[in-house]
């Protein structure tokens, strides 16, 4: 058995402490790489447990308007997969927070599955989540990740039945990402309903911690979702407040992460 991944180590520790993992998502390069870099460091300092780095793609079919617009800004600013890997390398001089790449397959495929896994590992990436790569199509990338010691993280959805959950379980490592709503990314005002049983089923069949994301807008929803999730992922809401903050984007990322952290820690203080 390979050494435990940085992701699993963090999640095991939190489970042991009875606390919830907070996972902010950053759209890399919106508006530029330096802001993303400072925002990630601010979020890590404010209590983020794992960082998701969104690799911008021209045609993000699973994303709502906020991340679509953010991806376009990032691409116009010159963001690219090699640039994301450079960013991770640079972040690793300052933080050990686990990092997951979150993206669409075409940029990964063009880079090359094996080369990507190797270079990502070298840069300090811990896991890869590919939105449009269901387990049926994930063979080459997930084999490459396994060889390089990266966790393959898969999506499951409210529409996934037991056979789909089992297919994901076979290839998953680190955690499983459960999409809270049938829909695209984007903060929603209502709390996702009726997915508690599904999340429990995913945890049982996959034997891994379960993250819940898509549609979580702030501390209140994060707390509600954390009642049944092990990790809470916040994407569009964070991307939006950063964009609205203009020159204060990086600081606001830290402040927003701190708010979420505080909310989760008050509701789930743990056993310590």
């Amino acid at each position: 058995m390979a050494a435990q991944s940085r992701i699993s180590a963090v999640l095991d520790r939190l489970a042991h402490e009875g606390r919830k993992a907070l996972v902010p998502f950053f759209s890399v390069g919106d508006p530029d790489i330096d802001v993303t870099r400072r925002a990630v460091l601010a979020a890590a300092k404010a209590g983020a447990d794992i960082i998701e780095l969104g690799v911008p793609f021209s045609d993000p079919i699973a994303d709502g308007p906020v991340i679509q617009a953010s991806s376009q800004r990032a691409l116009r600013g010159g963001a690219s997969l090699p640039g994301v890997l450079d960013l991770v390398g640079s972040l690793r001089t300052e933080t050990e927070v686990p990092i997951v790449l979150f993206g669409y397959y075409n940029p990964f495929f063009r880079y090359g599955d094996a080369l990507l896994a190797r270079d990502a590992k070298t840069a300090g990436v811990d896991g890869i989540l590919c939105v449009d790569l269901p387990p049926e199509e994930a063979g080459p990338l997930s084999a490459a990740c396994k060889d390089s010691g990266l966790d393959s993280i898969f999506l499951l959805a409210p529409t996934s039945d037991d056979s789909r959950i089992r297919a994901v379980a076979e290839r998953s490592a680190g955690f499983v990402y459960f999409v809270a709503v049938t829909g695209v990314t984007g903060a929603r005002t209502d709390v996702p309903v009726g997915i508690e049983d599904k999340v429990a089923r995913v945890r049982e069949l996959c034997g891994l911690p379960v993250g819940v994301g898509f549609g979580i807008s702030g501390p209140e929803q994060a707390v509600a979702v954390a009642a049944y999730a092990d990790l809470v992922v916040v994407g569009s809401a964070l991307v939006r407040v950063m964009h609205e903050a203009g020159p204060r984007a990086a600081e606001v990322a830290g402040e927003f992460t701190a708010l979420l952290r505080q909310g989760l820690d008050v509701a789930y203080p743990g056993r310590a």
Binding site: L133, E136, E137, D161, V179
Partner: peptide
């Protein structure tokens, strides 16, 4: 060819 789609669509 193949089926490169988000998981939500796979059952459909």
């Amino acid at each position: 060819g193949g089926r490169y789609v988000p998981e939500t669509l796979m059952p459909a």
